[in-house]
Design a protein around this nucleic acid. Structure first.
Lengths: 112, 112
DNA sequence: TCGCCATATACAGCTCATCGGTATATGCTT
DNA sequence: AAGCATATACCGATGAGCTGTATATGGCGA
């Protein structure tokens, strides 16, 4: 396991792979969709993340296809990867909830 | 403004200052509470973040007190800082929601 | 009274994820 | 012919955060 926080690009790569296996470029498109166009991964960021996550055992190669003489390597989220992502979701929810509450307290004070 | 994602320590420092002004050590304790003990900021991380956030105009010095011949510098979240934090909360909620949905899809498939 | 812990701020050096840019290759559109 | 979408990959630079350390005071237990 790992106790550190995941960075946003890493979190989104795992999220993109959570529902079904996808190849690199598919992850790139998917992350853009998930983030509502706010996040466009750099190619370097994506493939570095995929290598790192493979080494951690959180993702693995699902299959390889050749389409128009171009390689398509599909990655899949592993069970440990899904567990790690779920833990990160909980962690982030706790933090965003705290932030929301405090921002509300703040506006309440501002009105007082 | 800024379109990049906030890292976890930075996000938590802003959150700690959202409700009321606090001094450095108070932020340190508060972040531990918010995160349920999962995150303990390093002193170096904290003061570097405070300097950076001051330079961005997201936090500012509220007041200084001397307690037991020790300086206590209180920081306060500014309005732009509150706006930035609120934007980051929304961004994170969008991402965590997507991750949750996909993890559920995944377990649904596993059961099929 | 000696050491340890909590409080409190500060800095220096390192690591590593991410960024920016580039290379390579194909096929479709303008 | 140029440009864009698809597709993977590498390399150097950046910078937030981490580790460790220095400084200082006061309280507590051995």
């Amino acid at each position: 396991m790992n106790d550190g926080a995941l960075r946003e690009p890493t979190f989104l790569v795992l999220t993109a792979l959570a529902a079904q296996p996808q190849h690199g470029y598919g992850v790139l498109r998917d992350v853009e969709t998930i983030s509502g166009g706010q996040v466009t991964l750099r190619a370097g960021t994506l493939y570095a993340a995929l290598d790192r996550l493979s080494a951690e055992g959180w993702v693995e190669v699902d299959r390889e296809e050749v389409v128009d003489s171009r390689l398509r390597r599909y990655y899949r989220l592993t069970e440990p990867g899904a567990t790690r992502l779920a833990a990160e979701v909980q962690r982030r929810q706790r933090h965003t909830t705290a932030a929301e509450q405090r921002l509300q307290l703040r506006s309440a004070e501002g009105l007082a």
